[in-house]
Design a protein around this nucleic acid. Structure first.
Length: 503
RNA sequence: GCCCCCAUCGUCUAGCGGCCUAGGACACCGGCCUUUCAAGCCGGCAGCACGGAUUCGAAUUCCGUUGGGGGCACCA
């Protein structure tokens, strides 16, 4: 339930695409602020931009929140006392508020046409060709010259009667400055003359984001407005809106942006950036959340592995940093490895299964997948690595006898040929093809021959895999490969060596 | 161009005037372990952007410079 003092945060995505990790992080912090303060977390869909709507985007939001465990207390799907939670269903709410501001002198009707607005900007753009393409060059913030700001009542009446289309613009103070307090950036002050008379209500009657946002946040009793720092520069306008309505402003929590490795805004060219794309690339939701929590926020100590519940307990707003952070895939991968290794073997097998099925002969049927997963689990940091690691099971790759030489193991082709021959005989008579039996047979062979384990194991592993580096050692590979295929490969290795050695 | 913000190892960060010869983590490089490689353990490399000021004392405060990011729509 909600009382006067209940903290309320909201995640307000616009369904224009898939869930970007930057948005996911914003949602996470909103969730954590609510949970850590005993508050409520709500979901609001901001779909007022009909042109940019993307099919399936709302579903992606639900799916992602679900997958990641940010449970919202209120929202379009779960209801709540402050609905509707979809902006397009709230359209009737905004106009009265805009009209109220016109009445109180905080806003005015503007009848300027799009053409006039463009002509205001065009000459300015030409002036600084090759430049930043700024629009305040015209001498007015935002490029609008406040043409309709002081229209007489009679003139307004005339235009209205003539049915001229109009927008409602916010009337910014011309002097002084506006100050607001941000929970992470501190006190920020902007000269009012820098503020544009922004549009509140479009000529089609729809509110702009800037307006709907403030109205909705107030109506929904949102106490902490959390968003990316790209909104920092428009916050003074929101602040003025709150003041004009005489509403209590929320606590502003602006988050540092997330950049790519080149310091530019994180985008597809940096790699996977949507939550689902990351999952498809073999990152676990828990790892993504843990990693992202620490991108721009710090618990203060040196601990860095936290479950979502643990984050809820230790999260504090003042741990949020101010400088932009770079999304580092290497670090994400490390977190992923940590979570992968911590999983119960069966759980790991479950997430690895689809990757294995794709890469193994017959989809892995008949193979000891549990054993294979066991070998993979401590070695994998990203599921995409699996196919490459196990491809030799499907087919023995072409390999040169150089692989049989290893300085550290003290092996060379001649020794390998000998050991392979003996291993072949030893294993052919093996009663049961189990991990323990294989281990006993091979180490026993090494002992009898007066060799180091590696001098037997290395050649056998190479023959069985044709691969220099494999997940697991000779015994794991043999046991997964099975008797027939193992013996076939060992024999093939032996013959390959004998041919090469001229014997 | 104008406005706002930011600035500790390559990256994520701790630090909130003395505990800092700046701590942790990723990555990287060594070593140990070992039937390969990983994992694990041990060790190493590497940073307070610059210049002033305040102070007995500055990574920590102030000013400036430089660099970076963001904003400047009838988009959100």
């Amino acid at each position: 339930m909600t009382t006067e003092s209940t903290v309320r945060t909201r995640f307000a995505p616009s369904p224009t695409g898939f869930m970007h990790v930057g948005n996911l992080r914003t949602a996470l912090y909103e969730y954590l602020i609510a949970r850590s303060l005993g508050g409520r977390f709500l979901l609001r869909i901001e779909d007022t931009d009909r042109e940019r709507l993307v099919d399936g985007a709302v579903e992606a939001v639900y799916r992602t929140l679900e997958r990641v465990g940010f449970r919202h207390d209120e929202g379009p799907d779960v209801g709540g006392d402050y609905g509707p939670y979809v902006q397009s269903e709230r359209l009737h709410l905004y106009r009265p508020f805009a009209e109220q501001l016109v009445t109180t002198g905080h806003a005015y009707r503007c009848f300027c046409t799009k053409e006039r607005l463009e002509s205001l900007r065009a000459p300015a753009a030409a002036e600084d060709e090759g430049g930043a393409g700024g629009s305040s060059v015209s001498g007015f913030p935002g490029g609008y010259d406040r043409h309709c700001r002081e229209l007489s009542e009679a003139e307004v009446r005339r235009l209205l009667d003539a049915g001229a289309p109009f927008v409602i613009r916010q009337k910014m103070p011309l002097a002084g400055s506006t100050v607001f307090e941000d929970a992470v950036y501190g006190s920020i002050s902007v000269a009012n003359e820098e503020l544009e008379d922004q549009v509140l209500l479009k000529s089609d009657g729809f509110p702009t984001y800037n307006f709907a946002n403030v109205v909705d946040d107030h109506l929904m009793a949102v106490t902490h407005v959390v968003r990316g720092s790209e909104y920092l520069s428009s916050t003074p306008k929101y602040q003025l809106l709150y003041e004009a309505f005489d509403w209590k402003p929320p606590v502003y929590v602006h988050l540092p942006v997330v950049n790519g490795a080149d310091g530019k805004k994180l985008s597809k060219r940096h790699g996977a950036v949507s939550f689902e794309a990351l999952v498809d690339e073999g990152y676990l939701p828990e790892a993504i959340v843990n990693y992202i929590a620490l991108l721009g926020w710090s618990p203060g100590g040196t601990r860095e592995l936290f479950t979502l519940d643990e984050l809820c307990e230790v999260f504090r707003i003042d741990g949020i940093g101010r400088s932009p952070a770079v999304f580092d895939y290497d670090r994400l991968r490390w977190f992923n490895g940590e979570y992968l290794r911590k999983m119960a073997p069966e759980a790991f097998l479950a997430v690895a299964a689809p990757w294995l099925a794709d890469a193994l002969p017959g989809g892995g049927a008949g193979l000891d997948l549990g054993r294979l997963a066991g070998a993979l689990q401590p070695r994998v940091t990203q599921m995409t690595q699996i196919p490459g690691l196990v491809s030799f099971f499907r087919e023995l790759p072409e390999y040169g006898i150089g692989l049989y030489s290893n300085e550290k193991m003290k092996t060379d082709p001649a020794l390998a040929a000998e050991m392979l021959g003996k291993a072949e005989q030893e294993l052919a008579g093996l009663g049961e093809w189990t991990h323990d039996a294989l281990h006993a047979a091979l180490t026993g062979l090494a002992q009898r021959e007066g060799r180091k384990n590696g001098q037997v194991m290395w050649p056998v592993r190479i023959a069985a895999s044709g691969t220099e580096v494999t997940p697991g050692g000779a015994i794991e590979i043999l046991s997964v490969l099975g008797r027939d295929e193992s013996l076939r490969r060992i024999a093939a290795g032996r013959r390959k060596l004998q041919e090469a050695l001229g014997r």
